[in-house]
Design a binder for these strands. Structure first.
Length: 113
DNA sequence: ACGGTGACACCAG
DNA sequence: TCTGGTGCCACCG
């Protein structure tokens, strides 16, 4: 299997898993990578989500960094600001330090799937 | 082809 | 807490 095929397959796995995150819950980049059996590949999750169109059916907004914060970047062309708006619409609140409470909102995937 | 870059994470101080 | 350094590895010019 070519490397490029393995990679796009990995991206599909990422999208499929992110789709399972229910409204009002979030996962971290590292958590997604680990759940897919690739610890330390958190950056790949960011790359995969970067390619997702803002109006996609993939709930890309439900993935944040390990500090419970939205990762900002000029490259995102404002989708980072949109991310916060979408999450707040789902009932998620941010504290004065722009952080959401991971203990409260972290998605716990059902192991029996 | 190759080196800089980055929607990350973790650790030391 | 916060900051800086390090590990990681696909992406892109």
């Amino acid at each position: 299997m070519k490397t490029s095929d393995r990679q796009s397959h990995f991206y599909q796995q990422i999208y499929q898993l992110v789709r399972k995150i229910p409204p009002g819950k979030v996962a971290t980049y590292g958590q997604i990578a680990e759940l897919l059996g690739r610890p330390r590949h958190a950056r790949q999750i960011g790359y995969a989500l970067y390619r997702v169109a803002p109006d996609s059916d993939i709930p890309w907004q439900r993935v944040v960094n390990a500090q419970g914060m939205i990762s900002h970047s000029p490259q995102r062309q404002g989708s980072d600001d949109l991310q916060r708006i979408l999450l707040e619409q789902e009932g998620i609140t941010f504290n004065s330090q722009e952080k959401l409470d991971l203990r409260r909102y972290r998605w716990q995937p059902d192991l029996l799937e």
